[in-house]
Design a protein around this nucleic acid. Sequence first.
DNA 1: CATTACTTTCATTAAATACTGAAAGTTCAG
DNA 2: CTGAACTTTCAGTATTTAATGAAAGTAATG
Lengths: 176, 176
Amino acid sequence: MKVMNVPTDRLKLAKDEFIAQWGALGTQWGINRTMAQIHALLMTSPQVMCTDEVMEELSISRGNAHTNLKELVNWGLIKMIVVKGDRRDFYEAEKDVWQIFTIIARERKRREIEPALAILNRCVAETKDLKSAEAKTFHNQVKDLEEFVSFASKMSDRVAGMKHGFALQLATKLLG
Amino acid sequence: MKVMNVPTDRLKLAKDEFIAQWGALGTQWGINRTMAQIHALLMTSPQVMCTDEVMEELSISRGNAHTNLKELVNWGLIKMIVVKGDRRDFYEAEKDVWQIFTIIARERKRREIEPALAILNRCVAETKDLKSAEAKTFHNQVKDLEEFVSFASKMSDRVAGMKHGFALQLATKLLG
DNA sequence: CATTACTTTCATTAAATACTGAAAGTTCAG
DNA sequence: CTGAACTTTCAGTATTTAATGAAAGTAATG
């Protein structure tokens, strides 16, 4: 095996650390460990990678690599790349942080906010005409929640739809 | 058993639906089902409730109820209430949606953003002085992430620290 | 059309997470 | 003190979620 020079070795250590920790974080985020690790790996890889390289690098099975690569493609966080003259599928991560942010925001909205809104709307509608004090408490609370979540949802669209520069400008004003 | 009138029955149905669905949603949010259900139950309850009432209502064990009530108190989403002349602990949920939002934002920041920042900072520092092209790619990507996450963290503080009215005003301008 | 080089699926196994219920702990009243 | 009424803990169990690896599928090549 090739003896690595010091800088490369330190890079490898930092990268492995990053991948491992990002994976652990993923679980906090409701994303599975492997998916987060693959994302970290591809995001910091200067080249596109094929399935076998990912398997090798992370010591995971083919099925696992495949499932999670597909899921990342689904989210839009990575793209499949065809290299001509090569049958293998290669993958490349989106690297622009603002893009990554908008993709994650969109996906979280779809998975977390929209179902919540659906439930809230239904519960508001189902109790609109009830007259008891208890029913009114319930109805009002759910309506407040519904209004807030609906509002948050619109805000999220608005912010994620901005160009990076504009968002930054707005935010700077806000922080200033 | 008492025969319920129609409105009460419809309320019960809506409430059960709300609790069940909110619980299911909780799992998407990385919160466990029971914790989300208890939260939904207390948030829409006109009165404070004791452990046994929660157990009864949700058909869960004492241990489970206890653990999750504690966790909700920890988050600050519910408060323990002492009723004098009664040894039992009662619980009451925070009902103001803006308060709920700021509590959840704070908690998510603590659990999701801060650990991420710690890792990113470390990886940036560890690769600052490496010279290879690959190291530079890694360093730059991680630095971009670090800057973005740090920025998002500050934004989150700023927004969650606002008074509801002010946030609303700002947001209205943004949406308008 | 048969071989090769890959991708995809899926039944099984493993790991992580949540729940139960009984036992131990605490507090207070008599 | 003692017992009653409640809270807290935790070992064991159940449920849920993720990973494996082998088998099946697909498509390009000669």
